[in-house]
Design a protein around this nucleic acid. Structure first.
Lengths: 256, 256
DNA sequence: AACAAAGTTTCACTATGTGGAACTAATATG
DNA sequence: CATATTAGTTCCACATAGTGAAACTTTGTT
């Protein structure tokens, strides 16, 4: 069943670890966190480095994610047709409301931000392209979940660890599920400081053939800058944009 | 010597292939291009898919690069401190000259564009973040090469295949080398339709401790929009920006 | 229905990767 | 400055994980 997953899986596990550090990391540091014996880990790191997936800094004896990843991801992103299709619409929306706009897709229960348009003056606390966030505490995540068919929604919820990012983060599948029902009714998700303190967002789903969600877009801002009602007021605009993006999705874009 | 490279290397080779297609690809298509026997290729693809590095579309029976790459690359990019440091400077420059500005780094003889700022009205033919291009036919590539120490320059040149992208592309290490000398003198590289017809650029190196290049920035535009002299006129501005970025580089940012 | 092409599984074989332990740098520490 | 300590690298007997030809199943086509 699990096939070649062995070695490849191990290598990617290591890669994830290095990426997770968010800074150049020494071999010894990896070793303490890793489930692999020293020699094995050593060889994995070697391979990844040889392959350009990791970047070794010989002076500081540290490893970081390699540029080959950037190149590969570019391909992924180019083919994530959603980002491509959405781009002009997102630009227009961002300009018209003068706030940051994000495009996200769901991947193995995580929300991946595949594009973002940010107003020049806005700051960078907010998600960036490529960032991954949990679905249960983001506007885009919740709205995608809400529109997912029962079974797939279940899958995602089951494997969720409800980590409290802020005081307002949902702490259980039950409380979340209740909100998901409302979201499906209203067609938009509000997220009020559930992921970061001081940050709020509204999200609308991008629906293929008017049912399955292929992603979502959201407007995010500071809670000090807009009231919730104010934010809710932007939702028609947001929904319209989402709808326009959806019409450009050809049936073969997001099959599954 | 070559350690775990075996399986991991093979898997990444397949990943590269899929990425290179630039569109969803069927198993059979991969098979014809691949040096691996069917069963082996099959298992590699399986593993990569299981791991989220490839994305399988069950309806169309096609594979594409997976979103996990985007996530990993985000980490790479975040740590590519050059992009981070350069960003505000690049923004300012792009606005002041009203042209597209790129930031690139060199990686195994290839130029990787790690950031780009594009004017709203500007078109998208030009490089995007994550794009990889040969060093010998891009402004950023040439300028980095020019400032590389002899030995490393040699390495890169030796493994170059001088593919003619346009009529004006350099066709040999000799002709390129001659230009590299000039570039080192003047401190900037001009690239006139060597990569794409109708596109021109000027590039300046970003030098660590005023000698080793860690990357480069460039201004790119259409040949119909600016004369070469016009473009050259932008170079003081470009060099100044590059210098400003360089001052913000801490010695430990780009060791090697 | 018959055929062809694409995709998947099997299985004996062995190359590839494993990991404990021994070895060799590099960095503290007294 | 010798010595202890920790980090990084290599070895090698061993076994697991991956191989690939061939058989099989599924999917699509005429």
């Amino acid at each position: 069943m699990t096939v070649n997953g062995g070695t490849v899986g191990k290598a990617l596990e290591v890669l994830d670890q290095v990426a997770a550090f968010g800074r150049p990391v020494r071999f010894a540091e990896l070793q303490t966190e890793s489930r692999f014996p020293k020699a094995t880990l050593y060889r994995l790191v070697q391979s990844l480095t040889e392959q350009g997936m990791l970047n070794f800094d010989p002076d500081r004896h540290t490893y970081g994610p390699g540029l080959r990843l950037v190149r590969l991801a570019h391909a992924a992103w180019q083919q994530s047709s959603l980002a491509q299709i959405a781009r002009p619409h997102v630009d227009r929306l961002a300009e018209s409301v003068c706030e940051a706009v994000d495009v996200a897709q769901i991947d193995h229960g995580h929300v991946v931000f595949v594009d973002r348009r940010q107003q020049v003056s806005a700051m960078d606390v907010l998600p960036q392209t490529g960032l991954v966030a949990p679905s249960f505490c983001t506007g885009v995540g919740k709205v995608i979940l809400a529109f997912l068919p029962e079974d797939r929604q279940g899958e995602v919820l089951d494997q969720q660890a409800f980590v409290p990012y802020t005081e307002k983060t949902h702490l259980s599948a039950e409380s979340l599920k209740a909100e998901l029902d409302e979201i499906r009714q209203s067609g938009i998700a509000l997220e009020v400081e559930e992921h970061f303190d001081g940050i709020v967002s509204v999200a609308a789903p991008i629906l293929k053939a008017e049912c399955e969600p292929v992603g979502a877009i959201s407007i995010a801002t500071y809670s000090s800058r807009r009231t919730i009602e104010d934010l809710r007021g932007l939702s028609p605009n947001l929904r319209e944009t989402a709808a326009r993006i959806a019409t450009e999705i050809e049936p073969w874009h997001f099959p599954n």
